[in-house]
């Protein structure tokens, strides 16, 4: 499976020729509620990111605005429906829709999740967890090989926010992701909020978790807010709600991630309780300030 894979990891900063890359700046998740504001004010944003499935419609206002906004801003397309971690085969019709969308918008980046969301023909609209063992590893790698082959490009895989673990797991999540990246040549979309949420939820050290990831493969970072709940024993259970500003603890972990992985395209994700656009733009600027501060430290 892996020997025939044309997408070996690209190391040493050599960018793939076929696609430009996202700038190492702050980006904002593009929401229809902000279309008009963005076109009217043309804010200086490093890049925008959209959820692929929202644009898998024939026409209308979504495409109208995305075409215009994308025309002068780098774009990341982020899939939420491929079910790469699923037990069943990939949905080839969905892969066709993705290929058509990528051909239309030529995004600088395409990413998806280490999760599953479809089962038995039903789409469950959540990023669901899978056990980490050899069987899942083989399936995830086969699915990523197929995605990269069909789309003709390298994809980034996002680390998940999870709430349960499986007795069947035999590998640490970081080892699992490292194996996937090594075998398929895909990149890593490091979601720092997911890392923080998962580490709190599973009693792990978030910094050690980051250090154990294949950080040379990082192509983008996600930041988002989370909500607080408690588990049955009263221990904190963080929820990846995307409904609040990025938490202080996640900013701290982000700064640490930048020291390890260098400056990266960094997205502010917000899907719930959407504020006015300038609030998100300010968080994107905050990410750029963190990156600049780290660069200054390294130069000193």
């Amino acid at each position: 499976m892996t020997s025939a894979n044309p997408h070996r990891p690209i190391r040493g900063g050599a960018a793939p020729a076929a696609h430009a890359t996202l700038p190492a700046r702050g980006g904002v998740g593009l929401k229809p509620e902000h279309f008009r504001h963005i076109l009217d004010t043309r804010p200086d944003i490093g890049f925008f990111e959209v959820h692929a499935e929202n644009y898998m419609v024939a026409g209308g206002p979504f495409h109208h605005y995305l075409e215009r906004i994308r025309a002068d801003t780098p774009l990341s397309i982020h899939g939420v429906g491929l079910s790469i971690g699923g037990e069943g085969p990939l949905d080839e019709a969905h892969l066709d829709r993705l290929a058509a969308l990528l051909a239309r918008y030529r995004p600088e980046s395409f990413s998806e999740h280490l999760a599953w969301s479809s089962h038995g023909g039903a789409f469950l609209n959540d990023l669901l967890p899978a056990p980490y063992h050899a069987g899942t590893l083989a399936r995830v790698c086969a699915h990523i090989d197929r995605v990269q082959e069909r789309l003709g490009r390298r994809m980034l895989l996002e680390n998940p926010a999870t709430y349960v673990e499986f007795e069947a797991s035999t590998m640490a999540e970081t080892d699992f992701i490292s194996e996937v990246v090594g075998r398929t040549g895909c990149g890593l979309l490091l979601d720092v909020n997911n890392a923080y949420v998962a580490c709190v939820n599973h009693g792990r050290d978030a910094r050690a978790y980051l250090r154990a990831l294949p950080l040379t493969a990082v192509g983008e970072i996600h930041l988002a807010g989370h909500a607080h709940d408690v588990d049955a024993a009263g221990a904190p259970l963080l929820i990846d709600s995307h409904g609040a500003p990025v938490a202080e603890a996640v900013w701290d972990l982000y700064a640490y991630a930048i020291t390890l992985a260098g400056p990266q395209p960094t997205l502010i994700e917000r899907d719930n309780d959407l504020p006015a656009f300038p609030v998100l733009a300010a968080e994107a600027r905050q990410a750029e300030i963190v990156m600049a501060r780290q660069a200054a430290l390294e130069a000193a």
Partner: peptide
């Protein structure tokens, strides 16, 4: 609105 996203509800 766009209906696909990757948030995890509110717990």
């Amino acid at each position: 609105k766009g209906k696909n996203d990757c948030k995890a509800g509110a717990g």
